[in-house]
Structures are given as C-alpha cells and as structure tokens.
C-alpha cells in the first residue's frame, strides 16, 4: 500500500516533467531534424537526403555568415571577460560589504530591461542625430554629425553590453567564495600583482570564468535583436539567415537545416568549453 502510494506520487510528479520535455523540447527537435533532411522535388513530393546541408556548404554566403557569427561571438566573449573581470573582482574583493550589495544590485538592473529597450537606448546614443554625435559637436570636437550606427563596432558594443552581466554574476559569486588569505599568502611569498593574479586568482576563478564564457557565447551566437537593430542591413548574423529562410522565403526545409547547424555549432563550442575547463553542465548553469 505504502509502496503503491510512493510509486503513484513519483508518476504524478514525473508527468509534468515528461510532458514538458517531450512535447516542447524532444519532439520539436526531432521534427526539425526530419524536416531538415527533406527536400521538395515537386509539389507535395518530397525526397529525403542531405540536400539542404549540401546547399549550405555550396553557398559561401551561408557558411561565411556562420563563421562571422561565430568569430564575432568569440570576440564578444573575450571582451566581456576582459571588461567584466575587474568589475567582478572589485565587487567581490575590494568594495565594502554595503557597497558590494548595492553594486551587485546595480549590475542586475539592466538585466530586467528587455534587449529591445537596451538596443533602442544604444540607437539613440549612437545614431547620426544621437546624443554622442550632438554632444561632440557641441564640444566643438566634430564639425558635422557622424553616424556611429550600422557597423560592426556598434554591434559589438551592443552585444557586450547585453551579455556582460551574465559574465559578471558568476565571476563575482565565484570570487566571493575565495579566501582573502590566499591572496595575502601569495604576496607574502613574494609574488607581484601580476603573478598573484595569474597563479592564484585566475585558477581559483576558473569555474566562474567557464560558466560566464559559455553562457555569454551561447547568448551572443543566438541573438537576433541586437545585430539587426545596431548593425542594420549588413549585419549578416546567422539567426537572420534562419529568419529569412523561415519567414521571408518560406523555405522551412533549409531553415530547419540552418537551425540544426546553429544548434550543432553552439553545442560543440559549449561542449569544448566544458571539456577544456573540466566543468559540468549542471554546475555551469546553476551558477548564473
């Protein structure tokens, strides 16, 4: 009797999980794989094969876009780490306890505002009639308005801005757990600032660095809004290609193939990141 009740409660608890994962994650992805392997040869006649993938590799525009998206995402990840690490260190180790809480909260505020509003804010700052351009003219540095929008630099600024919090939060929480005496010991043993940073602080912060980098890379490679709004027509981001295939050309078969390629690409990078740093997925995600 007791055993039956236990089993029943297990089944009841498992049901929502199973429904969610099966209907919203597993089946949709299987459906996408099947669709990506299908090719329309005549109206209502389909053949199965790798034609959609072959088309991707035969058309330089497509794979160039994926490579471009990947390398720019990598650049954004590195920049976010370099810019964010000192901030995380300041929050965790240098600020006093009260300031620490306040800074941490300040860091989280932009997180609660949508990507759209953040990108919109950057548009108002960077465009030809924008705040920065007007300000520089007012100062007399510029003689006429300049357009700072619709180029790669604007896209990178916007992306770093959007994702940097996902770098700072895991870094700060990892560094927060580090004992100050470890750093002091490093100095007492005669290490200089750089040595202490390289030999003690960075190795300790490695789990935080890994989870920050993985989340940031994934978010950047999968982002759509920021590259489109700040990069304009020439942003050529891979998610834009997927949107184009799905919505504009209504070519779902090759859109699904592109989607699978993006998923495979980000998964491989995430997997490599985990392997190289010796982290597990569960630890990585729960940090943020």
């Amino acid at each position: 009797m007791q055993k039956d009740i236990k089993r029943l409660s297990l089944i009841l608890l498992f049901a929502p999980f199973a429904l969610w994962i099966t209907l919203l994650i597993l089946l949709p992805h299987i459906g996408m794989v099947v669709l990506s392997l299908r090719e329309k040869v005549a109206p209502r006649v389909y053949e199965y094969g790798f034609a959609n993938y072959i088309e991707f590799f035969n058309e330089p525009i497509y794979w160039n876009t994926l490579i471009r998206t990947g390398s720019m995402s990598l650049l954004v990840t590195v920049l976010a780490l370099i810019i964010g690490f000192p901030i995380a260190y300041y929050i965790a180790k240098i600020a006093g306890p009260r300031l620490r809480g306040a800074l941490f909260l300040l860091c989280l505020i932009p997180l609660w505002v949508s990507d759209l509003i953040r990108a919109f804010g950057w548009i108002l700052l960077l465009r030809e009639t924008g705040v920065i351009s007007s300000f520089l003219q007012w100062l007399g540095i510029l003689s006429g308005p300049i357009e700072m929008l619709y180029n790669d630099v604007a896209v990178i600024i916007g992306l770093v801005y959007t994702v940097i919090l996902f770098m700072i939060v895991p870094l700060a929480s990892t560094l927060d757990g580090m004992d100050n005496s470890m750093i002091e010991a490093g100095y007492n043993l005669g290490g200089r600032g750089i040595t202490v940073l390289r030999r003690i602080i960075i190795p300790y912060a490695m789990p935080g660095i890994a989870s920050g980098c993985i989340i940031v890379f994934m978010l950047t490679a999968g982002s759509y809004l920021t590259p489109i709004l700040l990069g304009g027509k020439n942003s050529s981001w891979f998610t834009e290609q997927i949107y184009d295939q799905f919505i504009t050309r209504y070519n779902w078969e090759s859109g699904a193939a592109f989607g699978m390629l993006l998923l495979a690409f980000t998964s491989i990078v995430v997997w490599l990141g985990l392997k190289l740093t010796g982290q597990t997925l569960a630890n990585t995600v729960t940090k943020t």
Partner: peptide
C-alpha cells in the same frame, strides 16, 4: 530517487543552453 535521475536532470537543464531562436522554430515546425 529513480533510475536515470542524473540523465533526466541534465535534460531539465538543456533548454537553457539551446538558443531561443531554435526553440522557436522547432516548436513552430512540430
């Protein structure tokens, strides 16, 4: 406690590391 708990736990976390665009199109396709 149930068999395959670790596997299912990872399955539970996976949606967070799938790009949002992919989740959108896969559900649209299905």
């Amino acid at each position: 406690d149930f068999p395959g708990k670790n596997f299912f736990y990872i399955l539970m976390i996976v949606p967070l590391v799938i790009p949002g665009v992919i989740l959108g199109i896969s559900i649209l396709v299905l």
